[in-house]
């Protein structure tokens, strides 16, 4: 079946079987391998991308379900001006170790900060509750999200110095 999508701003058509999962379309047919597959059971969030601006787990959607919709993956975060503020915040705050969870985590954060530009620590932790990270222990991710939030609001930037707790 032929579907039409906009991937990171580019309109395209793709031929898929109805049973093709969205994550397989993105990674295998469209070669956007920034979107990862972790658990394949809608638990870890590594496959998170945006569908019409809303975060979703692409391992639990059929490609045919996004016919006519706009998809944004981590590849779509980079702008002509360089890193997206969320990418910059993750880099500066050591919010990744192996990086496997990072694309999905950041795509989730895009929607989180759009709905709630200045979230509290609790709101951040609930906001990323569908994304697992096995490396960082989350503290630096929370810190990075605070940093990105400040940067995107034009507020004073928090320190990126490591905290020893």
């Amino acid at each position: 079946m032929e579907i039409k999508i906009t991937l990171n701003g580019t309109e395209m058509t793709a031929e898929v079987e109805p049973r093709t999962l969205l994550v397989h379309l993105i990674r295998e047919k469209l070669s956007s391998t920034g979107t990862h597959i972790g658990c394949d059971t809608s638990s870890c969030g590594a496959c998170t991308l945006l569908i019409d601006g809303k975060s979703a787990k692409s391992c639990t959607l059929l490609a045919v379900q996004v016919n006519g919709k706009a998809i944004t993956t981590v590849e779509g975060l980079l702008t002509v001006d360089g890193l997206h503020p969320i990418q910059e915040a993750f880099k500066l705050n050591h919010a990744l170790h192996c990086g496997f969870c990072t694309p999905g985590m950041m795509m989730r954060v895009v929607e989180l900060l759009e709905k709630n530009p200045d979230p509290s620590e609790e709101e951040i932790r609930w906001g990323i509750s569908g994304n697992l990270c096995r490396c960082t222990g989350y503290n630096n991710i929370v810190k990075a999200i605070k940093y990105a939030s400040a940067k995107m609001r034009g507020a004073e930037l928090p320190s990126t110095e490591p905290e020893f707790v």
């Binding site: 809608s42 998170t48 809303k54 975060s55 979703a56 787990k57 639990t60 989730r108 609930w126 569908g130």
Partner: peptide, 12 residues
């Protein structure tokens, strides 16, 4: 709602 799955699942 807060206890149903996670934000991504609740979007769908």
């Amino acid at each position: 709602a807060k206890l149903i799955a996670d934000p991504q699942v609740r979007n769908w």
